[in-house]
């Protein structure tokens, strides 16, 4: 029996949305976005009394930069392969929000496949699995890639 999928951080990421997306908040008066979502007060100076509205962040952007994890990160990273398999990490600039958001890159795409300026899209993909569930997280995927992870998105 397959395990249920849950978001690894439901306050930030809706894994089963149509489509999956990050949750941000927008300062109504200034237009500034916040990710992770900020509910207390706008961080734009001078807009302390502005309302903050929950929004879905853009799911596509351009690659600002990228790297990889050549060694297994320490806890609380949860190992998913034995021995460790390097994975890529991307920083993607969202045009509408004018902000850069980090995320792992989908399985099967290495740093060698990436270049600053590439179009990237956000997908839902497994982060790790425990006894109860598959914990899903947002990952970045080159729009032109044939990678299969996150293909259900």
């Amino acid at each position: 029996m397959s395990k249920p999928q849950v978001s690894a951080k439901p306050e930030w990421f809706v894994h089963d949305g149509e489509p999956p997306h990050l949750i941000g908040t927008q300062c109504e008066q200034s237009g500034t976005y916040h990710f992770p979502p900020e509910y207390t007060m706008s961080r734009a100076p001078g807009f302390a009394d502005s309302a903050l509205t929950e929004v879905q962040l853009s799911r596509t952007g351009t690659l600002w930069s990228y790297t990889n994890a050549g060694y297994q990160p320490p806890s609380p990273y949860v190992p998913v392969a034995e021995p460790f398999e390097p994975f890529a990490i991307a920083a993607v600039e969202l045009a509408e929000e004018q902000m850069v958001v980090l995320g792992q890159v989908v399985e099967g795409v290495s740093a060698d496949d990436l270049q600053v300026g590439m179009e990237m899209e956000l997908v839902s993909a497994p982060l790790f699995e425990d006894d109860d569930a598959v914990h899903m997280v947002w990952k970045w995927k080159p729009v032109s890639s044939g990678a299969t992870e996150g293909a259900n998105a």
Binding site: K9, Y66, A69, P73, P74, S75, F87, I89, A111
Partner: peptide, 27 residues
């Protein structure tokens, strides 16, 4: 956020150094 970046991204300190370095190369 310092705990979450390891859990959700596997982002260590060198991850950030790598991002800056790769951008220098491409830019």
């Amino acid at each position: 956020p310092d705990w979450l970046r390891f859990r959700l991204l596997g982002a260590t300190n060198p991850t950030y150094f790598g991002l800056y370095a790769r951008r220098r190369m491409d830019l």
